[in-house]
């Protein structure tokens, strides 16, 4: 077991040493996608912004919630969910898409995970522009507590990284997995309070839908501080515990199957 950890950690270390490469490739991916387009990745921001505006107005009517309260809630929720869902969905292709490089150059395969994470963080950064606009529109100001969303975001990213690593390996071996993952992500979207507010749920259902949903906790540690509240201890605890346990499993798995990935491609 220690040997598996050593293998995994050595590879991750080697990938971190070559972090600029992952950064360059991730950046290149984004530029490639939007080359010759004037607005580039901001097209994503615009479509996301329009979507949030529409849904904000519509659902605040349906749920009879104040738009001042609902719009920031759905804005942060949708942007975070965009980040979470796209990384998880893309995890299915993370190694398959880099087949050429993996089969030709002995670059640690964790580099490809970092590349994909970085690409999605960049997209997230573009989308983040919507938040101040929304806050301005509803005349809401940020408190100091909002700074807590930064460690929150880092913890979410740490969690997503092990998920991508684990799913990436599984999806390379079992090519039906990406489809399964994509439909599960869709289900989680509706089960997680993104479009609906947790307080709208009846007490008993709430306990099931919220406390047992890791994505609720992950969202909360970023969303709550921006909305002006401190995330609960449970939110932090679950997110942290998930990171530790998840990385434990992912490292073992990575150590065991790392060498097989090129053979599966």
């Amino acid at each position: 077991m220690t040997q598996l950890f050593t293998v995994a950690i050595t590879d991750i270390y080697r990938a971190l040493v070559r972090l600029p490469l992952a950064g360059l490739l991730g950046w290149q991916d984004l530029r490639q996608r939007y080359r010759r387009s004037t607005l580039g990745p901001f097209w994503l921001t615009i479509s996301q912004g329009v979507m949030i505006g529409m849904m904000g107005v519509l659902f605040s009517q349906i749920f009879k919630t104040e738009i001042e309260e609902f719009l920031p809630f759905i804005a942060i929720g949708m942007i975070m969910w965009g980040y979470i869902s796209s990384t998880i969905i893309e995890s299915g292709m993370v190694f398959v898409a880099s087949e050429g490089i993996i089969k030709q150059l002995p670059i640690p395969i964790f580099t490809h995970v970092l590349r994909m994470m970085w690409r999605n963080i960049l997209i997230f950064g573009h989308n983040l522009l919507i938040v101040p606009l929304v806050l301005l529109a509803v005349q809401k100001s940020l408190g100091w507590v909002a700074l807590w969303s930064i460690p929150g975001f880092i913890l979410v990213t740490v969690n997503l990284t092990w998920i991508v690593l684990l799913f990436g390996i599984l999806c390379t071996r079992y090519r039906d997995m990406p489809q399964i993952v994509a439909s599960l992500v869709q289900v989680v979207f509706f089960l997680t309070p993104i479009m609906w507010m947790p307080k709208l749920l009846p007490e008993r259902t709430g306990a099931y839908l919220l406390d047992f949903n890791p994505f609720y906790h992950l969202l909360s540690i970023v969303r709550e501080p921006i909305l002006g509240a401190m995330p609960s201890l449970l939110n932090w605890g679950v997110s942290l515990g998930l990171a530790v346990a998840g990385w434990g499993v992912a490292l073992l798995f990575y150590g065991r199957y790392k060498a097989r990935v090129p053979y599966w491609l």
């Binding site: 490469l21 360059l24 490739l25 290149q28 490639q32 050429g100 490089i101 030709q104 150059l105």
Partner: peptide, 29 residues
Amino acid sequence: IGSLIDISLGIDPEASGRENIFLRAALLG
């Protein structure tokens, strides 16, 4: 170890030659 097996690997046709030099050289370590 250095490999000259596929020297065009990683070249992005949409990027400029200069950008590709950086890309390709970074891939080579």
